[in-house]
């Protein structure tokens, strides 16, 4: 069992194997994500009841909260890959770190935009500089910094390591985002689902939220694999295995 796992890990570390496995997995991730999204959206937009205070405006939660969770989850994935790239100098870890950044930036942008659209009718403003909103904006800049750094360095191996360092340094921002609503008083409300006692959301509203969160997670997995195999092909395009791919003939 353990040997099989180690074997699998080593094969994933080899670009041609990764290219083949990811090509087989990605459609499943994305297909399942789309099915769950359709179900979650129908549940969240049609079946779930209106909120006692916010009316139907609260339905933005079904995209805002999963996007915000993913913005942090993707960052942690990127940082772990960056750490592996720095310590073990694994080519595949470099690829994974570099390709996670634009996806994470997309989710962060979504969290900020949908939150802003929610804030206007509920809070009465599009934007405030409170600790939660500001730290999430810092996260967007961290992602943009990683993308810029990757583009600025010509040497792919060096770029992978530089990105790893920036990603690891930025990890401090993740607990700040999460705890900002508890450490400081903010306009943003406290945590609903991830607090220690029972979530303060009715189950009929919580279930579609969790379905959407899983769907976003799978969508991230699928698009990450697609971007990573592109990056592999870009880096190894003049290797024999890439030249001999059926799609290249």
């Amino acid at each position: 069992m353990f040997r099989a796992l180690v074997n699998f890990y080593h094969r994933l570390g080899s670009p041609p194997h990764f290219y083949r496995i990811s090509g087989r997995l990605a459609p499943w991730f994305i297909g399942l994500a789309l099915v769950l999204m359709a179900g979650g959206l129908y549940w969240g937009l049609v079946l779930a009841p209106t909120d006692y205070e916010q009316g139907d405006a609260y339905r933005i939660i079904y995209i805002h909260v999963p996007a915000a969770w993913l913005s942090m989850f993707v960052y942690m994935c990127m940082a772990v890959a960056g750490g592996l790239a720095l310590v073990w100098r694994m080519k595949m870890a470099e690829v994974m770190a570099v390709t996670a950044a634009p996806i994470g930036a997309g989710f962060t942008l979504l969290a900020l935009a949908t939150g802003s659209i929610w804030g206007k009718p509920m809070w009465g403003t599009w934007w405030v500089w409170d600790a939660r909103l500001t730290s999430e904006l810092v996260l967007l800049f961290l992602y943009l910094g990683v993308i810029a750094l990757d583009n600025a360095i010509e040497d792919r191996r060096l770029a992978g390591r530089a990105v790893g360092i920036l990603a690891l340094v930025g990890v401090v921002n993740i607990p700040i985002i999460h705890y900002s609503v508890e450490w400081w008083n903010t306009l943003h409300q406290g945590p609903t689902v991830t607090k220690f006692d029972a979530p303060s959301i009715h189950w009929s509203m919580l279930v579609p939220l969790l379905v959407m969160a899983v769907a976003f997670m799978l969508y991230f997995g699928g698009t990450w694999l697609l971007r990573a195999r592109n990056e592999v092909l870009r880096r190894e395009g003049n290797r024999r295995w890439a030249m001999e791919l059926p799609e290249a003939s």
Partner: peptide
Amino acid sequence: GGYGAYVWSAYGITVAVLAWQL
């Protein structure tokens, strides 16, 4: 419930960004 413009613009942006990612 009167929040259509807000809800649908939020969902519209999400669909656009997710489609772009694919």
